[in-house]
Design a protein around this nucleic acid. Sequence first.
DNA 1: GGAGTTATGGACCGATCGGTCAAGTTAGGA
DNA 2: TCCTAACTTGACCGATCGGTCCATAACTCC
Lengths: 194, 194
Amino acid sequence: MARPKEFDVEEALDRAMELFRRQGFEGTSMNELQEAMGIGRQSLYDTFGDKKQLFLRSLDRYTARGRETMAAPLFAPDASLPELRRYFEEIVEFLTPRDGNGGCLLAGAIVELGADHPEVASCCRTNQRSLREAIRKALKRAQVDGMIRKEIDCESISLVLMGKLYGMTLLARNGASRAQLRKSVKQLLDMFTS
Amino acid sequence: MARPKEFDVEEALDRAMELFRRQGFEGTSMNELQEAMGIGRQSLYDTFGDKKQLFLRSLDRYTARGRETMAAPLFAPDASLPELRRYFEEIVEFLTPRDGNGGCLLAGAIVELGADHPEVASCCRTNQRSLREAIRKALKRAQVDGMIRKEIDCESISLVLMGKLYGMTLLARNGASRAQLRKSVKQLLDMFTS
DNA sequence: GGAGTTATGGACCGATCGGTCAAGTTAGGA
DNA sequence: TCCTAACTTGACCGATCGGTCCATAACTCC
């Protein structure tokens, strides 16, 4: 081994992730990334490969981060309806920040690259699958405990809720307020709770 | 007046719209547009202005087209629950074409340009407002006729349904099948019908 | 204290970007 | 008929794109 890196790889990746989240893939240039990450051109390419690889790593980090923070309680083995409600509440808050720079890297990735970048598409689908599964389990658990009506099909409702999450990212980007989103979440969730 | 155009403006716009829908704003170059539209460079700029103006006109056309075709029955003065169901069914079909080139120009516009292009954002919001209003009226009418439970708040459910539409564009882009989307629509709509 | 390895900074690459210029062509109106 | 306004064509513009090369610096190991 020789000369150590002068920058923090994880931190640089966070900066890239944030820029991609706000501006999208095509909308962000390597020059902007380099500047935002605070590293030199060559260090960028040596460490992260080309732009697509950097985006993919940012996306991976983004989804992992989401699972570890906001979604963590939902992924807990005993997660139920309260955890689900709390998760949706956190998503609403995340999508409507004070500075107005809402926007979801995952949604951007699906729209912008989902059709022609297999690895990105794969990452997005994997994330959707695991999240949906966590939602389904939480719903089922809540149903067993009598918090959700018996006739509800948790499997298909989990897809409805995934769509709800995606839908909110666009509603938020299109001007919906935190209060509006919060209310729409409550309306939907109350609909199948008993 | 002098020499007439050799190409059909509306048709050229359709081509541009289709390309933007599939590839997004940043993902589509003027060279590609020129080729797809089948016109010369200068004709393009003379007729449509710069890229942003061309995109805006494409977006306008896209939303207008949607209102005139799929959404037309929903906008009818006597639209009710059947029209609403039918509209969602048509959207599902639109989002899951045989060739796999699903994708919604409106969703792309919101994600890619909603944050930093006021005119595009304005167009997206106007479209959302009018569509949501049509949904709300149809819901209300269905409620008066006893097809929807009395305790339902049509105003806020209309936002839930707008979110559902947006959500489906991402679900479709992320691999959801026509059958899955259809089922999720049924699940949601059945939830507040009596 | 070399020797070998990795990181850094900046110049540089061809390609492509959105957009324009100018010369030539085709029509309508006087 | 001929003038002129509008359309077409293709070369061309500077800027920026993603990506690479190379000389130099900084570190570890022998």
